[in-house]
Design a protein around this nucleic acid. Structure first.
Lengths: 339, 339
DNA sequence: CTGAAAGCGCTTACAG
DNA sequence: CTGAAAGCGCTTACAG
């Protein structure tokens, strides 16, 4: 590579000052139309590359947003990210992705990097065990945070997620309405707000239906397809086997259906299965999976919107917004259960 | 937020110079052990945040690597990313992710951002239609590139991917060995090196087996689960329906299996199905999916390693390294076909 | 409408 | 072992 092209290279080649060049490249009306065009042309010709860190050092704005979630490969997040991305694209913001795998250390190192780069904001699905003070640290250092999918007690920032207790209630109500009297719940952990709320919704619905909860019905843990598959053996070991299963997520449910098939049981015929999230795959799975649509794209769009509004100086909210979920009935829970 | 804490804040509070503080925080042996500790303690106490853009402006190193692929949600990339990440973590490098969705504009905007931030290197699975000149532009501006999964004619940079023609040949040979004489191939496009190579491997294997290829056997296009599912109707419309299907990827194969089941056909019994990639799900799918293990983790690890080596001054290679794939035989192609 | 000058917060020779 | 000074490439008042 030859010499680095900078503002002064352009300025010198045109006999102008760097101030004028800088303004022109940012389309300032302070610079005459003709001059502006000459400058832009010259920048192209010389192969000028804007030095964002110099600019950012001067202005203390970076034009960068961070997005950090625990599992980028989970279609649930995929759908959130897609809508975050669409919203940010629409508003012409660059963003940077991070996958923290629910490891607090990874999340911290990413937040640190964002701080060091002077990122303008952060959209975060917090790792298990994230203390409110981590959020405060970011906020105190001029990094506004918006939470998605999970929220944190006392964080003092706004967040968007589905109404998990209500949504899981819809699923269980539906099964009870179909005649089921023994319903297991597979997956999720009490370490996240999502896990706690979905389990609470499950238990509340059983109670509403006059069904007494039994400890053995609750298979905690699984949060992905593979662990859902593995959990089937624990389920099959339940003494009086439940006739229906609600799962923590679609991914878990799809794994569970694979596992049931492996064991010679037909999901949707021998046993009802319901997922959560309504990911794209739910509709094409065979049998098609009954599930709870969780408003991913609304979560993503609104979270991005809220952050951008705040960056533009609108007042910050501290609210957690709950998106209302919706039951999607498909084959996997279609058949009424004979009592 | 109060006043921003910077090197000079620490220096002033301790009656030292910023030079000493800067050296101490980076563990330079030029600074006395005791002084170093005092400085670090003070930095912690004051809540000092390193300003990476100032440092980077001065040194023109940023300590950041970019990783950009077309589909972050595809487990195939998930596995590559995991091993890239492990390798980078091991060598304590920060990296930034991007999903270009095979849109050249998105990829360019990310590469631009990397250039503007002065990123140290880039690992890229190039979007369809990426011209070699895009790679040259990055390289000329001091952004070393390593390609993964796909390669580009004339890019002049090193790349890592599976030996797709060979791998697809293994799959087709296996089917022929099981007695199949009519084999369809679903998915993939001639616009990527992967698509071209896998199709070439398929055709070569048919020829080796003395089977004449028929146009209608080739269902081009699908590259994800949903489009695999949708392609089943095209497959079922083939006049003399093939007895086996090789798919462009596991995702496509899993969608195809859903679609076949929907149509009342039993994959692995009525029809053989083979995928490509050996993603985690292949082994738990029911029936378990025969597939070609594509060495994702080796691709990721070696690509990251090659880039880091190059950053440390080792000579750049221009080679494309082909990882040798391996056939994994499972239920979905288990049964011999009666001739 | 354009230019000269200061400063963002670091690091790096160079002195001592 | 520590300090004074210059400079990375921008942008922003301030003049003119």
């Amino acid at each position: 590579m030859a010499q680095k092209v900078k503002l002064s290279t352009i300025a010198d080649s045109l006999g102008l000052s760097t101030a004028t060049v800088s303004l022109a490249l940012r389309d300032s009306s302070l610079v005459a139309e003709v001059t502006r065009e000459r400058i832009k042309q010259s920048a192209r010709d010389l192969g000028y590359i804007y030095n964002r860190r110099a600019a950012s050092l001067r202005t203390s704005k970076s034009g960068i947003l961070g997005v950090c979630v625990h599992d980028i490969m989970n279609p649930f997040f995929g759908e959130i990210l897609k809508s975050v991305e669409d919203e940010l694209d629409r508003r012409r913001q660059t963003f940077i992705l991070c996958n923290h795998h629910d490891e607090l250390a990874k999340q911290r190192s990413f937040v640190d990097t964002m701080l060091q780069l002077g990122a303008d904001g952060l959209i975060l699905s917090p790792a298990i065990g994230t203390p409110a003070s981590d959020i405060h640290l970011a906020e105190e250092n001029d990094l506004p945070v918006t939470l998605i999918a999970r929220t944190i007690e006392g964080s003092g920032v706004c967040g968007f997620r589905g109404d998990d207790a209500y949504g899981m209630g819809l699923a269980v109500d539906h099964l009870i309405g179909r005649g089921h009297r023994s319903i297991a719940m597979i997956g999720g952990t009490a370490m996240t707000s999502t896990g706690r709320d979905r389990e609470a919704g499950y238990r509340a619905a059983l109670k509403r239906g006059g069904i007494e909860f039994r400890d053995e019905w609750r298979v905690e843990g699984p949060r992905d397809r593979h662990s859902g598959f593995d959990a089937v053996s624990a389920f099959l070991a339940i003494e009086k086997r439940p006739t229906a299963i609600v799962c923590f997520s679609d991914l878990v449910a799809l794994g569970v259906m694979y596992g049931l098939s492996r064991a010679g049981l037909r999901p949707g015929v021998d046993i009802a299965v319901i997922g959560y999230d309504d990911i794209d795959e739910a509709a094409i799975a065979t049998p098609a999976l009954t599930t709870v649509a969780n408003g991913q794209s609304e979560v993503g769009r609104r979270a991005a919107g809220a952050l951008l509004d705040r960056l533009q100086g609108l007042p910050a909210s501290e609210e957690t917004i709950l998106i209302t979920p919706e039951l999607k009935i498909r084959q996997s829970s279609e058949f009424a259960w004979p009592n």
